[in-house]
Amino acid sequence: MDVKKTFLITLPVASAYGPLGVAFGVYLTTADIAWYWAPISAFMIFAGSIEFLAVSFMRDAYPLYLIAFSAFIINFRHIFYGLSFPYHRLKTPAQKAYGIWALTDETYAITSAGLGKDLTGNEITLLQIISHFWWAGGALVGALLGLIIPPEIEGFDFALTTMFVILAVDASKENREWALFLFILLSALLGLIAENFVLENSFLTVSLITYLACLIIQFKVRFYAK
Protein backbone atom coordinates (compact mmCIF):
# COMPACT_ATOMS: atom_id res chain seq x y z
CA MET A 1 0.00 0.00 0.00
CA ASP A 2 1.48 3.32 -1.09
CA VAL A 3 0.57 5.65 1.77
CA LYS A 4 2.52 8.63 0.45
CA LYS A 5 0.95 8.47 -3.03
CA THR A 6 -2.53 8.15 -1.53
CA PHE A 7 -1.93 11.07 0.81
CA LEU A 8 -0.73 13.26 -2.08
CA ILE A 9 -3.89 12.42 -4.05
CA THR A 10 -6.02 13.69 -1.14
CA LEU A 11 -4.35 17.13 -1.17
CA PRO A 12 -6.69 18.62 -3.83
CA VAL A 13 -9.58 17.18 -1.79
CA ALA A 14 -8.12 18.80 1.34
CA SER A 15 -7.99 22.19 -0.35
CA ALA A 16 -11.75 21.97 -0.89
CA TYR A 17 -12.89 20.07 2.23
CA GLY A 18 -10.68 21.99 4.68
CA PRO A 19 -12.01 25.53 4.03
CA LEU A 20 -15.60 24.31 3.48
CA GLY A 21 -15.40 22.31 6.71
CA VAL A 22 -14.23 25.46 8.51
CA ALA A 23 -17.16 27.43 7.04
CA PHE A 24 -19.52 24.67 8.17
CA GLY A 25 -18.08 24.66 11.71
CA VAL A 26 -18.39 28.44 12.05
CA TYR A 27 -21.94 28.36 10.66
CA LEU A 28 -23.02 25.61 13.08
CA THR A 29 -21.55 27.27 16.17
CA THR A 30 -22.91 30.73 15.31
CA ALA A 31 -26.36 29.12 14.81
CA ASP A 32 -26.27 28.32 18.56
CA ILE A 33 -25.57 24.61 18.29
CA ALA A 34 -22.89 23.24 20.65
CA TRP A 35 -19.49 23.24 18.89
CA TYR A 36 -18.81 19.51 19.32
CA TRP A 37 -21.71 18.67 16.99
CA ALA A 38 -19.74 20.05 14.03
CA PRO A 39 -17.13 17.24 13.89
CA ILE A 40 -19.78 14.66 14.88
CA SER A 41 -21.99 15.81 11.99
CA ALA A 42 -19.02 15.77 9.58
CA PHE A 43 -18.24 12.25 10.75
CA MET A 44 -21.82 10.89 10.55
CA ILE A 45 -22.97 12.47 7.31
CA PHE A 46 -19.95 13.41 5.15
CA ALA A 47 -21.95 14.98 2.33
CA GLY A 48 -21.77 18.77 2.02
CA SER A 49 -24.89 20.77 1.14
CA ILE A 50 -27.23 18.66 3.24
CA GLU A 51 -25.02 19.19 6.31
CA PHE A 52 -25.25 22.96 6.02
CA LEU A 53 -28.99 22.58 5.49
CA ALA A 54 -29.28 20.37 8.57
CA VAL A 55 -28.17 23.35 10.68
CA SER A 56 -30.81 25.54 9.06
CA PHE A 57 -33.50 22.85 9.55
CA MET A 58 -32.62 22.43 13.22
CA ARG A 59 -32.72 26.17 13.84
CA ASP A 60 -36.26 26.23 12.44
CA ALA A 61 -37.17 23.09 14.46
CA TYR A 62 -38.15 21.04 11.39
CA PRO A 63 -39.87 17.72 12.11
CA LEU A 64 -37.82 14.62 11.22
CA TYR A 65 -40.07 13.53 8.33
CA LEU A 66 -39.50 16.84 6.51
CA ILE A 67 -35.77 16.51 7.12
CA ALA A 68 -35.83 12.95 5.78
CA PHE A 69 -37.74 13.96 2.67
CA SER A 70 -35.45 16.92 1.93
CA ALA A 71 -32.35 14.75 2.39
CA PHE A 72 -33.77 12.20 -0.03
CA ILE A 73 -34.45 14.72 -2.81
CA ILE A 74 -31.28 16.76 -2.33
CA ASN A 75 -28.98 13.74 -2.29
CA PHE A 76 -30.86 11.86 -4.99
CA ARG A 77 -27.93 12.19 -7.41
CA HIS A 78 -25.86 9.89 -5.16
CA ILE A 79 -27.94 6.99 -6.42
CA PHE A 80 -25.89 7.15 -9.62
CA TYR A 81 -22.46 7.35 -8.02
CA GLY A 82 -22.59 3.77 -6.79
CA LEU A 83 -22.85 2.58 -10.41
CA SER A 84 -19.25 3.26 -11.41
CA PHE A 85 -17.54 3.33 -8.02
CA PRO A 86 -14.94 0.50 -8.01
CA TYR A 87 -16.48 -1.71 -5.28
CA HIS A 88 -14.86 -4.81 -6.75
CA ARG A 89 -11.46 -3.46 -5.64
CA LEU A 90 -12.62 -3.28 -2.00
CA LYS A 91 -12.16 -6.65 -0.28
CA THR A 92 -13.70 -6.97 3.19
CA PRO A 93 -17.38 -6.24 3.99
CA ALA A 94 -16.22 -3.48 6.36
CA GLN A 95 -14.28 -1.85 3.53
CA LYS A 96 -17.28 -2.04 1.22
CA ALA A 97 -19.62 -0.62 3.85
CA TYR A 98 -17.27 2.25 4.61
CA GLY A 99 -16.77 2.77 0.88
CA ILE A 100 -20.50 3.47 0.53
CA TRP A 101 -20.71 5.62 3.64
CA ALA A 102 -17.83 7.85 2.50
CA LEU A 103 -18.75 7.97 -1.20
CA THR A 104 -18.69 11.73 -1.81
CA ASP A 105 -18.66 13.67 -5.09
CA GLU A 106 -14.88 13.99 -4.85
CA THR A 107 -13.90 10.45 -3.85
CA TYR A 108 -16.23 9.18 -6.57
CA ALA A 109 -14.58 11.37 -9.21
CA ILE A 110 -11.04 10.47 -8.11
CA THR A 111 -11.44 6.71 -7.81
CA SER A 112 -13.67 6.10 -10.82
CA ALA A 113 -11.88 8.25 -13.38
CA GLY A 114 -9.34 10.65 -11.91
CA LEU A 115 -5.88 10.37 -10.37
CA GLY A 116 -6.92 7.41 -8.25
CA LYS A 117 -8.21 5.05 -10.93
CA ASP A 118 -5.27 2.67 -10.32
CA LEU A 119 -5.56 2.65 -6.53
CA THR A 120 -5.84 -0.75 -4.82
CA GLY A 121 -8.73 -1.51 -2.45
CA ASN A 122 -6.74 -0.67 0.67
CA GLU A 123 -5.54 2.56 -0.88
CA ILE A 124 -9.12 3.58 -1.74
CA THR A 125 -10.15 2.97 1.88
CA LEU A 126 -7.17 5.01 3.09
CA LEU A 127 -8.02 7.79 0.63
CA GLN A 128 -11.59 7.89 1.95
CA ILE A 129 -10.45 7.91 5.58
CA ILE A 130 -7.98 10.76 4.99
CA SER A 131 -10.64 12.76 3.09
CA HIS A 132 -13.11 12.13 5.92
CA PHE A 133 -10.51 13.51 8.36
CA TRP A 134 -9.96 16.64 6.24
CA TRP A 135 -13.70 17.31 6.33
CA ALA A 136 -14.22 16.59 10.07
CA GLY A 137 -10.96 18.37 10.96
CA GLY A 138 -12.05 21.47 9.04
CA ALA A 139 -15.41 21.34 10.83
CA LEU A 140 -13.69 21.10 14.22
CA VAL A 141 -11.38 24.05 13.49
CA GLY A 142 -14.36 26.08 12.23
CA ALA A 143 -16.44 25.19 15.29
CA LEU A 144 -13.67 26.38 17.62
CA LEU A 145 -13.25 29.55 15.53
CA GLY A 146 -17.00 30.10 15.85
CA LEU A 147 -16.64 30.14 19.63
CA ILE A 148 -14.37 33.21 19.61
CA ILE A 149 -16.48 35.18 17.12
CA PRO A 150 -18.53 37.79 19.06
CA PRO A 151 -22.23 36.82 19.05
CA GLU A 152 -23.14 40.30 17.77
CA ILE A 153 -21.64 39.40 14.39
CA GLU A 154 -24.48 38.09 12.19
CA GLY A 155 -24.88 36.77 8.69
CA PHE A 156 -22.93 33.51 8.63
CA ASP A 157 -25.95 31.83 7.08
CA PHE A 158 -24.85 33.50 3.84
CA ALA A 159 -22.28 30.67 3.60
CA LEU A 160 -25.24 28.48 2.69
CA THR A 161 -26.54 30.88 0.01
CA THR A 162 -23.19 31.40 -1.68
CA MET A 163 -22.48 27.66 -1.72
CA PHE A 164 -25.79 26.94 -3.47
CA VAL A 165 -25.11 29.80 -5.89
CA ILE A 166 -21.81 28.18 -6.92
CA LEU A 167 -23.44 24.74 -7.25
CA ALA A 168 -26.23 26.29 -9.34
CA VAL A 169 -23.68 27.88 -11.70
CA ASP A 170 -22.06 24.45 -12.12
CA ALA A 171 -25.42 22.77 -12.70
CA SER A 172 -26.46 25.44 -15.22
CA LYS A 173 -23.49 24.47 -17.40
CA GLU A 174 -25.04 21.00 -17.77
CA ASN A 175 -28.55 22.21 -18.43
CA ARG A 176 -29.69 25.35 -20.20
CA GLU A 177 -33.31 24.68 -20.90
CA TRP A 178 -36.04 27.31 -20.68
CA ALA A 179 -38.59 24.78 -19.55
CA LEU A 180 -36.56 24.07 -16.40
CA PHE A 181 -36.50 27.78 -15.59
CA LEU A 182 -40.30 27.87 -15.80
CA PHE A 183 -40.57 24.73 -13.64
CA ILE A 184 -38.37 26.39 -11.00
CA LEU A 185 -40.50 29.57 -11.01
CA LEU A 186 -43.72 27.58 -10.69
CA SER A 187 -42.26 25.39 -7.93
CA ALA A 188 -40.96 28.37 -5.96
CA LEU A 189 -44.29 30.16 -6.30
CA LEU A 190 -46.30 27.17 -5.03
CA GLY A 191 -43.75 26.68 -2.24
CA LEU A 192 -44.04 30.29 -1.10
CA ILE A 193 -47.85 30.15 -1.19
CA ALA A 194 -47.84 26.91 0.83
CA GLU A 195 -45.38 28.26 3.37
CA ASN A 196 -47.16 31.58 3.87
CA PHE A 197 -50.80 30.49 3.76
CA VAL A 198 -51.01 26.75 4.43
CA LEU A 199 -48.26 25.18 6.52
CA GLU A 200 -45.22 26.62 8.24
CA ASN A 201 -41.81 25.51 6.91
CA SER A 202 -43.33 23.72 3.93
CA PHE A 203 -41.45 25.68 1.23
CA LEU A 204 -38.77 23.09 0.42
CA THR A 205 -41.06 20.08 0.47
CA VAL A 206 -43.77 21.65 -1.70
CA SER A 207 -41.37 23.23 -4.18
CA LEU A 208 -39.20 20.11 -4.56
CA ILE A 209 -42.26 17.88 -5.10
CA THR A 210 -43.64 20.34 -7.66
CA TYR A 211 -40.32 20.42 -9.52
CA LEU A 212 -40.09 16.62 -9.52
CA ALA A 213 -43.69 16.39 -10.78
CA CYS A 214 -42.89 18.85 -13.60
CA LEU A 215 -39.94 16.69 -14.71
CA ILE A 216 -42.04 13.51 -14.68
CA ILE A 217 -44.78 15.19 -16.73
CA GLN A 218 -42.19 16.56 -19.18
CA PHE A 219 -40.75 13.06 -19.56
CA LYS A 220 -44.17 11.49 -20.16
CA VAL A 221 -45.11 14.15 -22.71
CA ARG A 222 -41.87 13.58 -24.64
CA PHE A 223 -42.15 9.82 -24.35
CA TYR A 224 -45.67 9.73 -25.77
CA ALA A 225 -44.86 12.30 -28.43
CA LYS A 226 -42.32 9.92 -29.93
Partner: peptide, 11 residues
Protein backbone atom coordinates in the same frame (compact mmCIF):
# COMPACT_ATOMS: atom_id res chain seq x y z
CA UNK B 1 -32.39 17.77 -14.73
CA UNK B 2 -32.63 17.62 -10.96
CA UNK B 3 -29.45 19.48 -9.82
CA UNK B 4 -30.21 22.86 -11.43
CA UNK B 5 -33.75 22.85 -10.02
CA UNK B 6 -32.72 21.70 -6.55
CA UNK B 7 -29.92 24.28 -6.31
CA UNK B 8 -32.11 27.18 -7.49
CA UNK B 9 -34.87 26.21 -5.05
CA UNK B 10 -32.29 25.98 -2.25
CA UNK B 11 -31.07 29.49 -3.13
Amino acid sequence: KMPIGVMCLLI
